[in-house]
Design a protein around this nucleic acid. Structure first.
Lengths: 233, 233
DNA sequence: CCAAAAGTGTTTCACTTACACCCATGA
DNA sequence: TCATGGGTGTAAGTGAAACACTTTTGG
């Protein structure tokens, strides 16, 4: 490596805001995956999964690796969020962090059992502990991004099981957007896009009319996009 | 500074996509501010203004400093864009770059005279030279951001003089969005927001009906936003 | 037969779109 | 008086929002 000047270099980390959707008997709430820190600074405080970027991996690879190592989470929707670089954000010295956010269907994983180094756990977004560093701000940024993006890109499906009912989908949107939606209007609109396939099987064992199950047809969505189609809730 | 492990650290730079709007006898076109590199690698190639992040400055401060030092550009709209961190993007070794984009009214500045180190120049976005590093990709990302953002935030005004005519504003939007707009509908809509103030003075010396000048009232915009108002073209 | 959520249409209202002519000015 | 862009209103169409009852199922 040859640089004309050798500058002192900030340290570079990635941090990932992992969001999930947990259904508590019909209600449903967003949740946040946190790691309990095993080392100083902020030892025993909860923090976002993340760590130092290695020389031989891209930023995204770094985020995926940390997710896997620290929480056992793999194969998820991941998108770069923002890079946090205020001078005093890490007590150890200058650390710049590239933040990502991930959307996860929580039942797809069993969180990594706690080791001496780390312990992973879901917290409801409405009530999670005080976080290390400036991680609370990063979470806030991720939520804003999610709330904006969910309206014009079909990323909500990342939070649901592959088969879902329209009511589940509507509840999810209501939780993310923070307000109620009209059932008939919601159904009409979401179905009008033609990107949901109604499946043969229905939900069984419920003490009311069995709802249909649907699947998001990503391939169809992509081809629609190419012909100028715009998804918008 | 004390880290449990001293990792090898990627180098960290900022790069800024500076966009301007030049009016060529009514037509109008977006332009891009580039710096001619004075050193290897890519010596004598055009590149985005930017440079290494120092230990005692935030990312945004770093971007502002580079803009001032390399081009003499100050007091402009600046927003973080994306962080580029592919392993092979810089031939010197591992360099991660936090990209920003700036919107500038070009007549506000006289570009820094060329020194032995650097030379700054505007290029039309429709035709600019081959760029160093992955800077062409960064420019593409910035343009996408601008095209999206201009529709729901009043950032277009950053590219115009403080006093402008509605026709100028419309042309600007047409250039950014890439398609023509209906004059009557555009005027009705933009005026309906109530964030433009019609000024007393008119354009003089034109061989046709003198157009009114307007000013963007940012304070009013901000207060509207607080009461739930949504800007959308 | 009761409780619970699924599923289904229509009307109203607001907003977007399309469209063409007269006006003011300087040369 | 001519050339040039400035400035203005209306009608038709489209999409969003509001709204309530019947259906199905398991217990």
């Amino acid at each position: 490596m040859s640089f004309s000047y050798e500058y002192a270099r900030p340290n570079l980390t990635v941090d990932v805001v992992v969001l999930g959707y947990h259904e508590d008997k019909g209600a449903g709430a967003l949740s946040l995956l946190l790691i309990k820190r095993g080392v100083e600074p902020f030892k025993d405080r909860w923090a976002l999964p993340g760590g130092f970027v290695r020389m031989d991996e891209s930023l995204e690879e770094s985020a995926l690796r940390e997710l896997d190592e620290e929480a056992g989470v793999r194969d998820v929707f991941l998108e770069q969020l923002y890079t946090f670089g205020e001078v005093g954000r890490d007590p150890r010295g200058r650390v710049v962090s590239v933040a990502y956010y991930a959307l996860v269907e929580p039942t797809k994983f069993t969180l990594k059992a706690s080791t001496d180094a780390a312990q992973a756990k879901w917290f409801p977004l409405s009530k999670f502990p005080k976080l290390a560093f400036d991680h609370a701000e990063i979470v806030k940024t991720a939520l804003n991004r999610l709330r904006n993006k969910v309206r014009y890109e079909p990323i909500g499906f990342e939070l649901l099981p592959r088969k879902f009912t329209l009511s589940q989908l509507q509840s999810l949107y209501e939780v993310i957007l923070g307000h109620e939606l009209d059932k008939r209007n919601f159904r009409r609109k979401i179905l009008s896009f033609g990107i949901l396939k109604e499946l043969e099987d229905k939900v069984e064992g419920v003490p009311y009319r069995a709802p249909s199950l649907y699947r998001f047809e990503e391939a169809k969505y992509r081809s629609f996009i190419k012909s100028g189609f715009v998804f918008e809730i």
